[in-house]
Design a protein around this nucleic acid. Structure first.
Lengths: 189, 189
DNA sequence: GAAGATTGATGTCTCAATCTTC
DNA sequence: GAAGATTGAGACATCAATCTTC
């Protein structure tokens, strides 16, 4: 609907003018990133499912709850941490609750709010699944990546993650992934 | 159905014994990887959808076809390149064909096989969408990552991708992402 | 009226079963 | 019988609309 083909010297962020060539060699890193994630996520998800009947997403949600202050999180916060839509988190918690792994609680400070609370059963399940998953991460990721690349990888991808949610609809989203978290291995309160 | 809980000193790859601690600092890189992908994929997918009515997956499939030798690929190969199940690729091609972006063709050498062939319309659509997508990759990934980290990132994540599909059901899967590919900018044959 | 959460409708992906051809 | 591809059934995600509380 715009951008006449005449080449204007400076336009703000015109997506009509390609900023990089389709054969830019740096795209190799991008494709490696994409492919590594797709293959690895698929594999880890499958390992977790067959061994413990948990999807990667469910595991992640349990982990986030387990490491949250009182083993509980507002639905919104949980959604942000596992990177799911609001409705998505409602249904994920539905499933986990049906399995007895979490419970819903009313938020004491805001009657609109709901909290997802990890149950003892949920914590136990998480602890049983953790070795499988950690082993998978170790075998398929940590021992495969060049140890020298690891810090740069964490730094750069951390920046990517933060940049990608700058300007998101919800400014409260994209909170730092780590705050004052409990340990999974703490005695289950 | 095995592994008695008695602690044996050395087991091959017993996933019951956690090889790394839940608070291993290297897990930061893993989480950064996960979060970066989730946030970035979501954003790029949205940009592509609103601007060109294509999902990231669909764009990727069109790109793979566009860069394949005769702008065509066996269903199996396409499935491997976009990392989708066989049934998944059938339905993806269904959709693209319904939009006139690809066509199905009989495989000349194997009557069982089907090929997905990029249409002129599909190529045109891909070319229109490419600037948007490349711009997104540039803005959200390439300019955010530390340039010094880029080579290590490509190398290590490439290894992760390859390692993750070692031992997959289909050994033909996980072919090298790049072979003799055509250029997207070639005159549409 | 805005924000938190849920529900209904819909789209996409997977597994298992099936059909055809090797 | 195995391999390539498709189909049916089911799982899981999203958007838009809704309800409740701020």
């Amino acid at each position: 609907m715009s951008t006449p083909s005449t080449t204007r010297p400076r336009e703000p962020v015109d997506p009509g003018r390609s900023p990089i060539a389709p054969d830019d060699p740096r795209l190799g890193a991008w494709r490696a990133f994409l492919e590594a994630h797709a293959r690895l996520a698929r594999r880890l998800d499958e390992e977790l499912r067959t061994a413990h009947g948990l999807s990667l997403q469910e595991y992640d949600a349990l982990l986030m709850l387990a490491t949250a202050p009182r083993r509980r999180l507002r639905m919104n916060q949980l959604a942000d941490r596992v990177i799911l839509s609001r409705s998505g988190i409602t249904r994920l918690v539905d499933r986990l609750a049906a399995d007895g792994l979490v419970e819903r609680a009313h938020c004491p400070t805001d009657a609109r709010g709901a909290e997802a609370v990890l149950t003892a059963s949920g914590l136990a399940r998480l602890r049983r699944a953790a070795p499988t998953h950690l082993s998978g991460i170790d075998r398929h990721f940590l021992t495969v990546v060049d140890p020298d690349d690891l810090p740069g990888l964490e730094r750069s991808l951390g920046r990517v993650a933060r940049a990608a949610c700058a300007g998101d609809a919800d400014p409260g989203a994209c909170s730092p992934a780590i705050e004052d978290r409990a340990s999974v291995t703490d005695p289950g309160t």
